[in-house]
């Protein structure tokens, strides 16, 4: 490794690339790391499928709840998607706004500090968010939820009756939103910062206001970044366990009512709650629900990839 790393571009015009030992080691370890990810993923999938099979083949009476496997997992899937969707609906606009403020509005010194604080949110353990949600947010949101029921009760989402403790789907959604805010903000911020300065200046030169410049230059450029950030956040919201387990008053029902004490539980929270005292087929059933979550996450990520790829040519990136 005596030669400086910058030389190859200028020093060797020959057709055959020089391969040094360091190159080969690095290439090998990088490939190994990539392959390892696939092996781990395949291992997880094999484990989930192998352990879930007894639940699929068991007779309905042996399963927890004593009915069909789909009847057991269905409400959990619904609850998982609903809580993640609420979180995403709240967090994405907020994260984009925060990222825009940091990159385009805030004075530089404030922007740095704010960016740091937002990143810090990601470092808080999820169980702390859970405790905060159940001890602070849930009781504090009670008057708000009562008002929602009073004025917007005709919307099925807020039909009530309002939970006595505030441990509702809405509170879970808000808590999850806080948890996924940092990742969406961080990704969006990085993308917004990469908007070509020429685009921005051209827009301003044509007489656009700052908001019009952002709308015409920054947002179209950053769209794929926002989407991938949102999908990363969605992944975290789907798999969030402890916060949901602690906060949500969940049972196996399907309802769109966000403010009552009857809520569908989520897959991950249900596994955390039921696993310790489960035996036999009940464990296999929980693992089967884990397999469903695995598939959902895979689907979500694939869809996100597809959206990003489809948008790539319009975005101006690359």
């Amino acid at each position: 490794m005596s030669a400086p790393t910058t030389t190859p571009a200028t020093a060797t015009p020959s057709t055959k690339p020089v391969r040094q030992l360091g190159d080969r080691i690095f290439a090998g370890s990088a490939t190994g790391a990539g392959v390892l990810i696939l092996i781990v993923l395949a291992g997880v999938a094999v484990f989930l499928i192998a352990q879930a099979i007894p639940a699929f083949t068991a007779s309905p009476e042996e399963l927890p709840g004593g009915r069909n496997l789909a009847v057991y997992i269905g409400p959990l899937v619904f609850g998982t998607l609903l809580s993640a969707l609420i979180a995403l609906l709240i967090a994405t606009p907020l994260a984009v706004a925060v990222a825009l403020f940091i990159t385009h509005y805030a004075p530089r010194r404030l922007a740095q500090g704010l960016g740091y604080v937002v990143d810090l949110l990601a470092a808080v353990p999820s169980i702390v968010y859970g405790l905060w949600g159940v001890a602070v947010l849930a009781p504090a949101s009670l008057p708000f939820m009562t008002r929602l029921q009073d004025y917007l009760g005709w919307i099925p989402l807020f039909a009530g009756p309002v939970s006595a403790t505030g441990r509702t789907m809405l509170v879970v959604g808000v808590t999850l939103a806080v948890m996924i805010l940092p990742i969406i903000t961080a990704v969006s911020r990085e993308v917004f910062l990469q908007t070509p300065k020429l685009h921005e200046e051209a827009a301003l030169a044509l007489g656009a206001t700052r908001w019009e410049m952002i709308r015409m230059a920054v947002l179209p450029f950053g769209r794929s970044g926002i989407i991938s950030g949102a999908m990363l956040g969605l992944g975290r919201a789907l798999g969030e366990t402890m916060a949901v387990a602690i906060i949500l008053s969940g049972s196996g029902i399907v309802t769109f009512n966000l403010i009552s004490s009857s809520n569908p539980s989520s897959i991950a929270a249900n596994i955390a709650l039921q696993f310790p005292d489960s035996t036999g087929v009940a464990v296999n059933t929980l693992i089967a629900s884990g397999l469903v979550l695995f598939v959902i996450t895979l689907l979500v990520n694939s869809i996100a990839r597809w959206i990003i790829n489809r948008r790539r040519e319009f975005s101006g990136a690359n």
Partner: peptide, 15 residues
């Protein structure tokens, strides 16, 4: 189904 559900004895007492 549909009651106020809480985790653990501490969760029930807290709720």
């Amino acid at each position: 189904q549909g009651g106020e559900a809480a985790q653990g004895t501490s969760g029930v007492v807290g709720a």
